[in-house]
Amino acid sequence: MTGKPIPVANPDTAVFWDACNEKRFLIQSCKSCGENQFYPRAICKNCQSNDLEWQEVSGRGTVKTFTVVRHAPSPAFKADLPYVLALINLDEGVSTMMNVIECDVEDVHIGMDIELTFELRGEQYIPQAKPISKG
């Protein structure tokens, strides 16, 4: 049985995935127009400049929308059921997809504050979201 998908970096994304292995989440900031973007690209999608700078995010965000998955897309995810798939707005103004983990699936709601965490998948850490820990 094949396991859960492990991201395979390409020249656009290698810096991002290497940083994840140091538990840092990087976005690209355009030095020409100031836009932040995620996922990583060779150019700024707003102004087409290639003068992009990597920027580490604060690690905070909110749940934009979510779903509780109860039917696995492949056998590898069956053991995780039910799990939360969510779109996350990071405070830096970019949107990502993650699972919301380390909480009851019934507690997840739109607007919920989250912080980033990292899950080891094979030899690659992947970013995930979890409720902000108290205290």
Binding site: P5, I6, P7, V8, A9, Y39, F66, P73, S74, L85
Partner: peptide, 27 residues
């Protein structure tokens, strides 16, 4: 069908086409 998802930034999170539409539905 699930291959419409992004190989690096969506597939690792167990997205299917129904769950992607469910994200729209919840919103």
């Amino acid at each position: 069908l699930a291959k419409v998802g992004h190989g690096q930034f969506e597939h690792p999170y167990g997205m299917s086409v129904p769950s992607a539409y469910a994200l729209v539905a919840t919103h």
